[in-house]
Design a protein around this nucleic acid. Structure first.
Lengths: 199, 199
DNA sequence: CGGGGAATTGAGAATCGTCAAGCCAGGTGG
DNA sequence: CCACCTGGCTTGACGATTCTCAATTCCCCG
């Protein structure tokens, strides 16, 4: 841990600023980051959404890597040079790498489950629950969305309009309440994640 | 590498046999494995498809893990005990772990891109291309599908019928040719991955 | 030569994407 | 201080795609 701090460089990023030297991996200190790819048809697909505490950049230190950029103005990222991490004999450093990679895997797997859901309101509901959980919010506490509707759409692989309609739908069903477009209060989590139930 | 071999246990699995002790990670020697979850609505969602050479089981050595089972009769898996891997001071072992985790991450990211596609024929097309690439087939060589239509459906998050219709569609467009339900020849890769093109 | 699961095909209903218009909030400049 | 303007968000209508249910065919295996 102290070893790591010797390598750590914390930097500040602007909204939309590109991040992702191939030779570094990162940890989000504050703010949010999106990792995305542009599909052959021109659509943007968000691969991963990084929140405070999340790490990324563990894939293929030598291969291709997807583009990443800060979403929130003033996002703070800690960066670690791969070369040094690999050279460090300290077993704690190795463990940090494993833990970071494991986190990434779990996040991607859970995201795959969300995207794999059938109906749009389920996807949005699962997204909101996941977000609340990852932000370590108390049940009933208001969720401040760090992302736009467009980001949510590209993250869930549905259109912006459908995201909007899903949110309205969940609201009408009494699952959530809105206090501004980016402030959501989860009222009934049960409705949210198994909103598969009949029309 | 030689170090690893000391830990390695290769076992044979039957079709549908469960695999996945929490304390082990695995590498596919031959055959195929599916890793899946059951959604709250009862649907099965395949998270990852493991082919020869692929590793899995790097997520959360201490947390939850998704169910996995062999798809092909006689699947051979090499298993490695986590405890020993972590205790091994050999840097090569540590590197193996990192490489395995990196592979998993890349696979999940690519799968996220496939599932995120809009139309079913694109998903199926991308799946076939990915499969051909991962099986190290020459261009034009016949792909032997290790999975059923149901597996493809649960992997791509679409219904079996849609998978079938997509394959028929791709066939009619001259992108692929079928020699039996599980033997596909890719004729025109270009049509396959950007089949987004109008109707 | 049969089973029987896998795969395909069809038809109707439900869902989603697209196009278009309208709304709302924050920021700018007169 | 207010009008305006821009970008994000919402809503509506319609066409396209997919899901569901059902029936039929295929093919592997005993």
């Amino acid at each position: 841990m102290d070893d790591l701090q010797a390598y750590t460089i914390v930097s500040r990023y602007h909204h939309g600023q590109r991040v992702g030297e191939r030779d570094y991996c990162y940890r989000v200190v504050s703010g949010a980051v999106r990792q995305y790819a542009i599909q052959p048809d021109g659509r943007r697909q968000i691969i991963d959404l990084l929140l405070p505490g999340d790490s990324f950049g563990f894939e293929a230190p030598d291969g291709e890597r997807f583009a990443a950029e800060a979403i929130v103005e003033g996002t703070m990222l800690a960066s670690y040079p791969w070369r040094r991490l690999l050279a460090d004999p300290n077993p704690e450093v190795a463990q940090r790498i494993r833990d970071g990679a494991s986190d990434v895997i779990c996040r991607l797997q859970r995201q795959l489950l969300v995207v794999g859901r059938v109906k749009a309101p389920e996807k949005v509901g699962a997204f909101l629950l996941e977000l609340a959980e990852r932000l370590l919010l108390q049940p009933g506490e208001e969720v401040r969305l760090p992302v736009s509707r467009y980001d949510i759409a590209d993250y869930l692989a549905i259109s912006v309009e459908t995201v909007s309609r899903s949110i309205t739908d969940l609201q009408h069903r009494g699952a959530i309440r809105l206090g501004g477009a980016r402030q959501v209060t989860i009222i009934n989590p049960d409705i949210l994640d198994m909103s598969a139930a009949h029309h």
